[in-house]
């Protein structure tokens, strides 16, 4: 079981990810606001962060940068509805293990999470 932080500005998206990954036995913490997610990471261990790139105030890349400072060993999967080469390159440089394009298939999500956690 892994501790997974999910951050997306669309509430339905975080609920879905929570549902899918809970069934896989993971401990899921969902957020739609960036500052809440960062605050949570300050006092709780996180194994994996699933971050949407487009958020309300910050970008997922900026959140990833801050989370990495708090928890360097934390793994991350970036999600985006509008993939660009620049955002993908930056995410990888900041330590994101996967870069997935929405709408991601349920099975694909399960596999990617398993794969990243296994690394």
């Amino acid at each position: 079981m892994a501790r997974i932080l999910v951050l997306d500005d669309v509430l339905d998206a975080v609920i879905l990810i929570e549902k899918i990954l809970t069934r896989k036995g993971h401990d899921i913490q969902t957020f739609t606001a960036e500052e809440d997610a960062i605050k949570h990471a300050e006092s709780n261990r996180i194994d994996l962060a699933i971050l949407d790139i487009k958020l309300k105030k910050m970008s997922g890349i900026q959140v990833l940068e801050q989370l990495k400072k708090l928890q360097p060993k934390m793994k991350a999967i970036m999600l985006t509805g509008y993939p660009t080469i620049e955002s993908a390159q930056e995410a990888i440089e900041l330590g994101a293990k996967e870069y997935c394009v929405k709408p991601i298939d349920k099975q694909e999500l399960e596999e990617k999470v398993a794969e990243v956690l296994a690394r």
């Binding site: 997306d8 500005d9 669309v10 339905d12 998206a13 609920i15 879905l16 990810i17 549902k19 899918i20 069934r23 949407d52 487009k54 999600l79 985006t80 509805g81 509008y82 394009v101 929405k102 709408p103 991601i104 298939d105 349920k106 099975q107 999500l109």
Partner: peptide
Amino acid sequence: GTAAHQINSPLFAALGTAQL
């Protein structure tokens, strides 16, 4: 791109929910 981005998040929710 903007339209795709705006559609993709609810689409992701709908697809995932349907699959669940």
